[in-house]
Amino acid sequence: MADWVDACATDDIEEEDVIRFDHGSRTFIIVRDHEDNYYCTDGLCTHEEVHLSDGLVVEATIECPKHSSIFDCTNGEVETPPACENLHTYPTKVENGRVFVEI
């Protein structure tokens, strides 16, 4: 059963930025968009398993730092190749200045 996990403080992430969040043996990213919405997706690009936390956030998209595949963080959909497989996304909520992720 999925649990809500305390991932980070809201101000750990700047506007239009991303941080890496490791939990157990898994790696995720927490993205803050330009309108202060928070998203959580798998942390590795579906193309070649590069850490997306080094990538570029524009609005609610994340761009892989190696091959420029772009994913929509709201639903994980890949928008530009070379990645062809969507990212998994995870529900998030903000409470008392903390970002929680349902993993």
Partner: peptide
């Protein structure tokens, strides 16, 4: 355009 997108991705990998 498609072949070379992937070819260049491999060049970077």
């Amino acid at each position: 355009p498609h072949c070379w997108k992937f070819s260049h991705a491999r060049h970077h990998s």
